[in-house]
Design a protein around this nucleic acid. Sequence first.
DNA 1: TGTTAGCAATCTTTGGCTTTGAGTGCTAAC
DNA 2: GTTAGCACTCAAAGCCAAAGATTGCTAACA
Lengths: 338, 338
Amino acid sequence: MELTERKKKILQLVVDDYIETAQPVSSKSITEKYLTTISSATVRSELSALEELGYLYQPHTSAGRVPSKEAYKLYVNELMVKDNLSTKELDYIEKIFLEKTNSVEEIIKKTAKVISELTQYTSLAISSHDGQEIIRNIKLFRIMPESALLVIVTDTKLFKDAVIELPHDLPDDNLENANNLLAEFFTGKTLAEACADNLKIDESFAGYKAVFSEVIGALKEYVSRSDEVITEGEDKIFEHPEYADIDKIRDFMSVVTKKDKVLNLLSENRSIKLNIKIGAEGYEEIPEHCSLVTATYSANGVDIGTYGVIGPQRMDYKKVVSVLENVGKILEAILTNR
Amino acid sequence: MELTERKKKILQLVVDDYIETAQPVSSKSITEKYLTTISSATVRSELSALEELGYLYQPHTSAGRVPSKEAYKLYVNELMVKDNLSTKELDYIEKIFLEKTNSVEEIIKKTAKVISELTQYTSLAISSHDGQEIIRNIKLFRIMPESALLVIVTDTKLFKDAVIELPHDLPDDNLENANNLLAEFFTGKTLAEACADNLKIDESFAGYKAVFSEVIGALKEYVSRSDEVITEGEDKIFEHPEYADIDKIRDFMSVVTKKDKVLNLLSENRSIKLNIKIGAEGYEEIPEHCSLVTATYSANGVDIGTYGVIGPQRMDYKKVVSVLENVGKILEAILTNR
DNA sequence: TGTTAGCAATCTTTGGCTTTGAGTGCTAAC
DNA sequence: GTTAGCACTCAAAGCCAAAGATTGCTAACA
C-alpha cells in the first residue's frame, strides 16, 4: 500500500493533535478541526490504512488512534513543520548568554536551564571535548604542602581546574620552575596533543618528570571524562498526563537523577549534531515510553557541550528541535565572537 | 490524663511498628508481636486513651492506629532507641572519607552520597561557613586579559575559587605585586575578618584598590552564600508505599529538584547541630507529609557543611539520627586530624 | 472507484450495589 | 483494672448495568 499525500497529511494531523491533547485522535475530530471538506468515514478508512501500515494503533477497539514509534520517526524526518521561536524567546536566550560566563560549569548550567525553561521538558547536559581546544595558559598553584591546583585556560576562554599531587617536599622555587616549563611546553598545543602518549619529555624536564606526568594525567582525565553532568527541570515530567502512572515517573526519575546514566546517554551522541531517539532504541538507560533529543554545540570548531531534552514519546518535537537549534546558534555566535 | 509508662511503651511500639510496616497498627498485632501477656482489649483501651491525648488517630473507624505528628515528636525526643550502626557500615564511612578529598565540593558530594546510601532516603547538602576559617593562601591567576581566578585555601585544607574582574589592562608585573599584597594582607585572617566592612586599606595598596574590592566582594559572596547544593538519592522516595500517590511524589520532587529551595531549607538550620522537623512546621518548602532531619558538621571549630535527610513523616528516625551522628563523628575526626 | 450516511458492535468508564473482612467500642463478668 | 464476647462501622473488592465514544461494515451514491 502506498503512502499517499493525503495519508501523510492525515498522519501529520494525528501526530500534531495527539502531541497537543494526549488523547487518542478520532476520525470525527480530524474532520471537525482540520479537514472539514471530507467526511469522517473517509478519514476512517485512511486511518485504518495507516494502522495497517504500522503508523497508528488503537488502545482499544472503541478508541481513536495513537501514533506508533514509526509514526513519530516519519513525523520528525518528514512531516513536522518546525516552530519559529517568538522574538521574546529569542531575546531571552540572548540576554542569558550575554551575561559574563567564564567557567565550563557555568555555561553548561545556564544552557541547561534555558533549554528546560523554553521547552518545558527536563534538560540534560554534559561538558564535552574533542580535544581540539588550544591551551592558552596553564599553571600550578600550591594549595597544600603536597598538592596543587592545576588551572587550564583554553581558547574557548573557559577554564577548568583539577587538583594534582606534588612530589614530596617540592620547594616553591621548583614549583615556579615547573610552571615555567609547563607554560613553555603546553601553551599553543591542543588538549589532544598535550596528552598524546608519544609526547617527548625533554631532558631538561627530567627533574619535573613526576609533575609532568601528574599534569598529563589530569589533562587526560579532563579530555576523556565529563565530570559535569547537569539536569534541569526534572519535575516538568509531572505536567504530562501520561505520567500520571507512578511506575513511569519512577522509570523516568531513575534515569534523570543518576549522573552516570545521564553521562552515558549524552556521551553516546556526543559526536552527533542533532539526534532524535524515540523510545529506548536499544539504550537501556532510556525508558521505552520516553524520547530523547540531543544536540552538540561548538565554538571555533571546538565542542563545548552536549545537551538533551528527555520527555514523553509524545514530545513536542517541533518546539524542542527549534529551541535546541536556536540556543545552539546564539551560544555559538557569542562564544565564537568574544 | 496521665501518660503512664505502659502508655509510653505502647506508643513506642505503635510508632516502631508503623515505621516498619507502613500499615495502621491494630491492638491485635501489638499483643501478638510484642506484649503477649496482656489482652488486645486492654491495649485497645490504652490506644483509645492515647488517641484522646492526641498521639494517635484512625484513618477510619475500622482501622488500626497511626501516629500523629505529636507522637513522632515525643518518639524522637524520648521514646526511640538509637540504632547502632554495624561495623560494616562504620567501615564503609571511614573508607569513603579516608580517600583524598581537597575541594569543598567533593566533601559535600561524598557526604551526601554516604548519608543517602546508608539511610536509604534522599539526602541534601550545602557547604556552610561561619567565617571562622583562617586564610592560609590566597592568589590571583589570570585567565583572560581582564579577569582572574581567585583561589583561596583555608585551614580546613579545602580550597574554593571564584572568577573576578581585573582593572583594564593590568600588566602581569602588577598582578604579581597585587598577589604579594593580597598574601601579606589576608593570610592569617579569618574569612569574617577579611570581609569586615571596616577593613583599613592601607596607603600602599592604593594602586590596587579596585583589585582588593573585587577580592573582598568574592570573599563576601563566598561567606554569605552556599553555591554548592547537592541532592542524592532523589528516587529513594519511590520505595515508600505512602508515596504511591502521584501528588505526594510531585510535592516531594518539586522541593528536592530545586536548588534554591534546598538551600533555603538547610540554611535556616545551619546553626543547629541536630534538628528534626516533622511535617511542614511552618516551612513552606517542606510538604506536610514529609520530615526533615538536618545536621551541621564542623572541624577545628569551623563549620564545613549542613546535611539533611528528607523523607516521609514515617521516617526511620533512629536509623537516620544514628547515621548522621556517625558520619559527622568520622568526618570531623578525619578533617581535624590532617 | 472513491466517498458517504447509517447503524450495529465493541469496549472503556462511571456509578451503584453487595459482600467480605478487619478492627474497633462497648458491655458485662471476672 | 482486665478480659471475652459481640454488635457496629467502614474500606476494599467484585459485580453489574448504563452511558458514551468510536469504530468497521454495508449499501447507496457521485
